[in-house]
Amino acid sequence: MVNPQIEGKIYPRTSSYLVGREKIREFAKAVFSEDPANHDIEAAKALGYKDLIAPPTFAVVIQERSLTTVLADKEAAIDFSRVVHGDQRFIHERPIVAGDELVSELKVASVKTLAGNHMVSFETAIFDGSDALVCTAISTLVVRGDS
């Protein structure tokens, strides 16, 4: 079950997440990245960045911190054991760079029911320390029905 009333609900901003250089290297290795700008500071600097840049899907780590808040929300009533990731999108204003301090704010964009399953779409806006938008992460979770 999902409470359809949470459509439109905005969850409070998370505490800030400091993007670590070694975290970027660790994540880059895990997604088989061979992009020098994910591993080598000189390569990233040569492209004009002040430190390593993260792979394009690293923003999931930030999104997850907001999603955890929703999954723990009793009002949302989302049964995590029935959740399947349906789709995912990242719209980047700029790459995430080591040293960024990021906060995220999540909005429940829609709650739909289709063939007994619930589909909940979330929009997570990720901001940097100067409150500029870095990335919008859009995710749909499918919550399987009782059948």
Binding site: S33, D35, P36, L47, P56, Q88, R89
Partner: peptide, 23 residues
């Protein structure tokens, strides 16, 4: 999702070139 985009990252010249990615 994370590994699939590497094919594009490698070709276009890095992670910084990815503006929007969905699956």
């Amino acid at each position: 999702m994370g590994l699939a985009v590497q094919v594009v990252v490698d070709f276009v010249g890095g992670s910084g070139k990815i503006l929007d990615y969905q699956v």
